[in-house]
Design a binder for these strands. Structure first.
Lengths: 155, 155
DNA sequence: TGACAATAGTCGTTATAACGAGTATCTTTA
DNA sequence: TAAAGATACTCGTTATAACGACTATTGTCA
């Protein structure tokens, strides 16, 4: 029995190797995500919120449009609106309407938001290295290449 | 710039190769998941519901405990309870208390549930082959091995 | 310019994910 | 056998994901 089949207690073999890979990717993403959840928990941030804060930090003083955030995260605008709502309520993000195009809302990370991210930089980096570091440079590179290839037929 | 960095419009290089792989896995799982969502949409099933139905089909006449379902899917019991509620309301699952141990609730897939799964077997199988088939036997095998290795340090 | 489309964001809804509290039913043990 | 603990599930809550409807603003073009 394959390692994955054993892990999910599936005695029946997979219908195809493709299906095994598919389930394997889902499972791996889920399991690795837990580690990040653990790291974020003390800061009361979800993974989505953390990702948005990092995007806002990258955008700097200029801030960024709501729609651009959702574009980078591949999520709906509507979800980003509400995610930003919560970050704004916690004082980690500020928002204001663009003067030139009043449809646009510009979001910026606040000093308080930057502070949290700075506190997270090391633990996050270390945590990820702790769970994936054992693969080593070569296998990480192989895995990256295969994953990019794996979704080449989708997006 | 790497393919992933380009995809998420991240000009800043990744802090580490581990981090790139981590984000890459999350992204790939998400993108591949969309395909399955599309296949399930006409049947008004979520991926979680589909997975549970397949587990119930695998369990056969004997049915299966709620806690065993959550064990296989690695989710909380509480979430499975509510997921089963909805499947039961739609007539795809039946539930009854175990006579011997009245704490236990046994769930079984109904004929109607089996019917839906049968209608889905081909499209699901074909859909996954369509998005991952281009990798070929060898790369699929490599990817499987690397993914199992990738989460070896976590669970 | 005035109708119409496109863009940017908000709000509503259902189902999940993750956390935790609570209830009923066995099991163990003093 | 009564009390304590373990087990199996249910219910409550907040934040997401995915869908869609809606408002406000800007752009296009006949």
């Amino acid at each position: 029995m394959s390692a994955l089949a054993d892990e999910i207690k599936q005695s029946k073999p997979f219908a195809s190797k493709e299906e095994e890979v598919f389930l394997n990717i889902q499972r791996t993403a889920e399991v690795l995500g837990w580690t990040m959840n653990e790291i974020l928990k003390p800061f009361e941030l979800t993974r989505g919120q953390y990702n948005v804060l990092r995007i806002l930090r990258g955008a700097g003083e200029d801030g960024i449009k709501c729609s651009e955030v959702s574009e980078r995260l591949i999520t709906k605008d509507s979800d980003i609106t509400r995610l930003l709502d919560r970050l704004e309520n916690r004082g980690l993000v500020s928002r204001e309407r663009d003067e030139k195009d009043r449809r646009i809302v510009i979001s910026r990370i606040t000093d308080q938001g930057l502070e949290i991210l700075e506190q997270l930089d090391e633990p996050a980096s270390q945590g990820i290295k702790r769970i994936l570091g054992h693969l080593g440079e070569d296998l990480l590179e192989q895995l990256n290449a295969l994953l990019v290839l794996a979704r080449a037929n989708v997006k």
